[in-house]
């Protein structure tokens, strides 16, 4: 089985841990427990008769207290950038982290998840910026780790991109 390392990157509290937990263990918790350190989970996914094992690196959220160590990105095959649709500023952090990945690892497959889609009433993220990114070729999905909308599909989308690189 081919193993592929995928880093979950984004500002704090955007739902990185929740997305992994929903995808791997089908669970969701309302309570916010910030991740201090790295947590690695695995899940296999089959695409076109090929099975990939995704090694998901859930990294501590980036903010003024904590920065993602470059060594954690090493060896990544893909990246899942996560922003929180209810906190517009988290998109800037996702974009910044994308640049960091480009610098440290080079251009590897990635997708951007705008999470917490179930909270559409509190949406503050700038739609035109998302449209702009889409025009620039970004693959963007609205997800909810809470009601699991698009979660499976999001990982599948990245896995498909990863498989194309093989």
């Amino acid at each position: 089985m081919i193993k592929m390392k995928v880093c979950m990157l984004g500002a704090f509290a955007v739902g990185k841990t929740s997305l992994v937990q929903q995808y791997v263990n089908s669970i969701f918790s309302e309570k916010y427990q910030t991740t201090l350190g790295v947590k690695i989970d695995k899940k296999s996914v089959s695409i076109n008769d090929q099975t990939l094992e995704l090694i998901l690196w859930d990294l501590a959220g980036e903010d003024e207290f904590i920065e993602v160590r470059s060594s954690y990105l090493r060896g990544s095959s893909g990246v899942i950038l996560v922003a929180d649709g209810t906190r517009a500023e988290t998109l800037d952090i996702a974009l910044m982290l994308k640049q960091k990945v480009d610098r440290e690892v080079g251009e590897i497959p990635f997708i951007l998840l705008v999470n917490k889609a179930d909270l559409a009433d509190n949406w503050t993220i700038d739609q035109t910026r998302l449209e702009q990114l889409k025009q620039d070729g970004w693959f963007i999905m609205l997800t909810s780790a809470k009601d699991s909308a698009n979660v499976e599909d999001a990982y599948l989308a990245l896995a498909t991109k990863l498989q194309q690189t093989l």
Binding site: F12, A13, Y32, Q33, T34, L36, G61, D63, F65, I66
Partner: peptide, 13 residues
């Protein structure tokens, strides 16, 4: 450190 970070981030949120 975890509690400190948690409180800081809870507060920001």
């Amino acid at each position: 450190n975890h509690d400190f970070l948690q409180r800081g981030r809870d507060e920001v949120l």
